[in-house]
Structure formats: structure tokens, C-alpha cells
């Protein structure tokens, strides 16, 4: 059922990075955010409200371990200890299972906050497309959510829907995007939304003489149309930011951009850390507030 190959797409490059130019020992407040998703987990450490380091890895069978391992990467690389971190916030679908977290915040609020940091305060629309869900978020200039919707009921428009087609075509999932542009002409989108029916439709197209690439193009287009219809519900406003697994599939991203008539904002960091970053930033704000009230009380 789950061949190693089709999981490959959702196994982002596991990456660990720290900002060597910063000295966490000199910082007043060190916070961490841990995003335990269904497919990958990220840990981000912020010093004085600035991104300091992150680590991203596959989520294992067990959420607490995934959280610990993700954070361990940053700790190891920086020589930090868990005790050095003043506040930890968990987010993502496994957020309540982060053992050392002081608080849990939904990924909706965290993604908005993280995107605001990475993409700048002009970001208004955020699309987060993960392995098993899809979220569209509208936020204000502070990264506060003003409108959001989530779709985790239906596999169409999620990474899972993409896996199904990769499986059907027997093509590694990472190749789908580039291949979808290697066609003589852009086909019409697959008409069924439902993954089950789209799969039969795709088979029919193959029988009718479509090349594999063309079928993939038709499927990517359908995926893009579906996601756009979701975003339209909350209203599209520039700037636009994409996070999550789908950000890695140019076949879908480019088509979404074309439909919306806009391009997604660029970031020098890996956009998948948005959730964990947002969580760490929330932690920072919270510490500032507590610090302020502590002084007041004193």
C-alpha cells in the first residue's frame, strides 16, 4: 500500500540550519516552536524574536518522539540545552503531544504568523497544502488571522490526492511537477473532483491516447482549480504565500499562480517551517507580555 517511492515526495529534504552570526547565549529570550505534522515535523528556535535555527524531518510513528528529535537537531548544532529555552509552543496536528511544550496553538494562527515574518507584513493570503489537508488563511499586517478555512475531510487537493496519481502512473511523485509541463498542449483539467472518480477518469484518458505527462498535467490543473476555489472563499489579496508540501510541486504552484494572476512571495528560508516559526514567535510575544506583567506586579 505504501511503497517507499510515493512517500518520497513528502519526505522533504531533511534539513537543519542555524544562524552562525547570532549568539544565543547573549539573548534575553529564547523560544522554540515545534510543528508536528502528519508527514513532517519542524522545530524552530528564535532568539529575541528573530529566527535563529530550524530543523525539519519526517514525522515518525510517535508524535512525542518526532517533536523531541526535531528539536534535538537544533540543540545539537547550537550547543543549546532544553533548559536554555524559556518557552516552547507546540503546533500542527500533533501539537498536544509535544512533551515539553508550555502551550499549544493551532497551525492556522502559527502559519499566518510565520508567513508574516518570512514573506513580510504585506502577506495577506496564505495557502498551506499538506499531506492530508489544505488550509487557506487571510491575515492582517500583523500576521493575525482574519479569515480561514481548512479542508481535511477530502483527499482531493491534498498531498494524498497527488500520491494516488503518482501511484497510478508509477512515476516518482517528485517528478510529477516537471513532467506536467512537458506536454504538446495544455489539456483540460480532469473534471471529477473526487480522487476515486478522477482516478478512473485518468485511466480513461490514458486509454484514449493521452501521454502520461498530459494526464498528469490535467490532474495538476484540476488540483490547482480546486485549491483556488477554496482560496476564493476567503478572498484573494496580495501578497500571496504558499507553504506546505505542495510548494514543492511546481506543476500545481505555477498553475495556481496563473489562475490567480499573481506570483507567490519568495522567501530565503524553507517555507515549510512557517508553522513552527510562527509558534516560536508567539512564544516570544507571550514572554514579553509575561515579563511586562511580572515587572508591573513587582
Amino acid at each position: 500500500m505504501s511503497s517507499g517511492e510515493k512517500k518520497e515526495y513528502w519526505r522533504w529534504q531533511e534539513s537543519c540550519w542555524i544562524d552562525e552570526s547570532k549568539d544565543w547565549r547573549a539573548a534575553k529570550i529564547v523560544t522554540a516552536g515545534i510543528d508536528v505534522g502528519s508527514v513532517s515535523s519542524q522545530a524552530v528556535v528564535c532568539v529575541d524574536g528573530e529566527l535563529y535555527g530550524f530543523n525539519s524531518m519526517r514525522t515518525g510513528n510517535n508524535s512525542p518522539d518526532s517533536a523531541t528529535n526535531a528539536l534535538a537537531g537544533v540543540l545539537e548544532k547550537s550547543g543549546m540545552k532544553l533548559e536554555d529555552i524559556t518557552y516552547v509552543i507546540g503546533t500542527g496536528y500533533g501539537r498536544v503531544n509535544v512533551p515539553f511544550a508550555h502551550k499549544a496553538i493551532t497551525e492556522i494562527a502559527c502559519h499566518a504568523r510565520g508567513a508574516n515574518y518570512m514573506g513580510g507584513n504585506k502577506i495577506r493570503t496564505i495557502l498551506d497544502m499538506g499531506g492530508q489537508d489544505c488550509k487557506a488563511i487571510h491575515c492582517d499586517e500583523k500576521g493575525k488571522v482574519t479569515n480561514f478555512l481548512m479542508n481535511d475531510k477530502c483527499a482531493a487537493g491534498t498531498g494524498r490526492g497527488m500520491e494516488v496519481i503518482a501511484d497510478l502512473m508509477q512515476i516518482p511523485i517528485a517528478e510529477l511537477g516537471p513532467r506536467s509541463f512537458d506536454v504538446d498542449e495544455e489539456p483540460q483539467a480532469v473534471s471529477s473532483t473526487c480522487v476515486v472518480f478522477a482516478k478512473s477518469e485518468a485511466l480513461g484518458l490514458l486509454k484514449a491516447g493521452y501521454s502520461k505527462n498530459k494526464v498528469i498535467a490535467a490532474y495538476c490543473q484540476a488540483m490547482a482549480e480546486r485549491v483556488v476555489s477554496l482560496i476564493e472563499r476567503i478572498g484573494v489579496e496580495n501578497d500571496f504565500f504558499i507553504t506546505g508540501g505542495i510548494a514543492k510541486n511546481v506543476g500545481v504552484v505555477k498553475r495556481i499562480e496563473k489562475l490567480l494572476g499573481t506570483t507567490a512571495a519568495e522567501t530565503k528560508y524553507d517555507s515549510q517551517i512557517a508553522g513552527a516559526l510562527g509558534a516560536a514567535l508567539f512564544g516570544h510575544t507571550l514572554m514579553l507580555k509575561q515579563g511586562a506583567s511580572a515587572t508591573k506586579a513587582a
Partner: peptide, 12 residues
């Protein structure tokens, strides 16, 4: 699961 695709994993 309320979706056929996700339900398959649940059944597995």
C-alpha cells in the same frame, strides 16, 4: 475517515 481515500488507510 469521511473520505474513501483516507478510509483506506484506516481500514489498513
Amino acid at each position: 475517515a469521511q473520505c474513501t481515500v483516507f478510509a483506506e488507510s484506516e481500514v489498513v
